Structure formats: structure tokens, C-alpha cells
Amino acid sequence: MTWSKDELGRIAATDDLHIAPLRDDRVTLGTPTWIWSVAADGELYVRGYNGQKSRWHQAAIRQKAGRITAAGMTRDVAFEAVDGPINDRIDDAYRAKYAASPYLAPMISARARAATVRILAKT
């Protein structure tokens, strides 16, 4: 399912997304991790600062489900690995949202791009 325009706008405008993929039992949520998020082409994306070695990233890709909290909302979500040309637009979204941050360069590096995840809203 896609995000409503309002929800996506609220999440994209905030800097407080916490991600909690399911644990291996597929029931228990992992510890929420604060992470940068961006919207591109009407979808919500996150990246692993430490690339594919990020613990939350490994769980998200393995379990494909979890929960996020952002902009005063808590939503059950699905996770999907992303690759390809969309990464250029995601880079642009990171540049626009986090231009003043000293952490921007690592978030648009090849390592972080390899750990790009689309977050899909569940009904």
C-alpha cells in the first residue's frame, strides 16, 4: 500500500523516524532505531548509515516487516530492498533535506546506497 499524500508529507518534513523491524520470531519488534528518511517519487525511503551491516537493515530485509514511528504516527509497515536509478532521486532528496549535516556524504555514499529500503504502509 502507498502512503497518503498527507502522511508522506508529514513524515518527509520531520526528522524523527524510528524504525523497528520484526525480530526472527516474526512477532516481536526490534528496538526502535532513529534513522533519516526521505520521500522520492511518492514513496518513503531510508538507508543504513553503516550500509548493509546495519543491524536494523539486516532485520528489515530478512523479515520484510516491522513498525515505524514518525511525525506523531505509528504504522505497521513492509520493507523492500531498492536498487537502480531511483537511488539518484533518493540522493537528491537526502541532499535537499539534510544539506547542512556533516553526515550527508556518508548517506549518499555507495555503502549507504547499497542499503536503501522502501517503507510501504500496511493497511
Score class of each variant (00 low, 15 high):
residue 1 M to C: 07
residue 3 W to G: 00
residue 4 S to V: 01
residue 10 R to M: 10
residue 11 I to S: 03
residue 11 I to L: 06
residue 13 A to F: 10
residue 13 A to L: 12
residue 17 L to K: 03
residue 17 L to T: 11
residue 18 H to W: 10
residue 18 H to V: 06
residue 19 I to F: 09
residue 20 A to K: 00
residue 21 P to Y: 05
residue 22 L to G: 08
residue 22 L to C: 11
residue 23 R to Q: 15
residue 27 V to Y: 12
residue 28 T to H: 14
residue 29 L to I: 10
residue 29 L to Y: 15
residue 31 T to F: 13
residue 33 T to I: 13
residue 33 T to Q: 13
residue 34 W to L: 13
residue 34 W to D: 02
residue 36 W to A: 10
residue 39 A to Q: 10
residue 39 A to W: 02
residue 39 A to M: 02
residue 40 A to S: 15
residue 42 G to L: 01
residue 44 L to P: 00
residue 46 V to N: 01
residue 47 R to Q: 03
residue 48 G to A: 09
residue 49 Y to F: 15
residue 50 N to H: 14
residue 51 G to K: 10
residue 51 G to M: 11
residue 52 Q to A: 05
residue 53 K to E: 15
residue 58 Q to N: 13
residue 59 A to E: 13
residue 60 A to T: 10
residue 62 R to V: 10
residue 62 R to G: 10
residue 62 R to D: 15
residue 64 K to T: 13
residue 64 K to A: 14
residue 68 I to D: 03
residue 69 T to E: 11
residue 70 A to C: 13
residue 71 A to C: 04
residue 71 A to R: 04
residue 72 G to N: 05
residue 72 G to H: 05
residue 73 M to V: 04
residue 74 T to F: 09
residue 74 T to H: 10
residue 75 R to G: 00
residue 77 V to A: 06
residue 78 A to W: 02
residue 80 E to V: 03
residue 83 D to I: 04
residue 83 D to L: 09
residue 83 D to T: 15
residue 85 P to T: 01
residue 86 I to C: 07
residue 87 N to L: 14
residue 89 R to W: 05
residue 92 D to G: 12
residue 92 D to W: 00
residue 93 A to I: 00
residue 94 Y to L: 10
residue 96 A to V: 07
residue 96 A to Y: 11
residue 99 A to I: 09
residue 104 L to P: 11
residue 106 P to Q: 04
residue 109 S to H: 06
residue 110 A to M: 02
residue 113 R to T: 06
residue 114 A to R: 07
residue 115 A to R: 06
residue 116 T to Q: 08
residue 122 K to D: 08
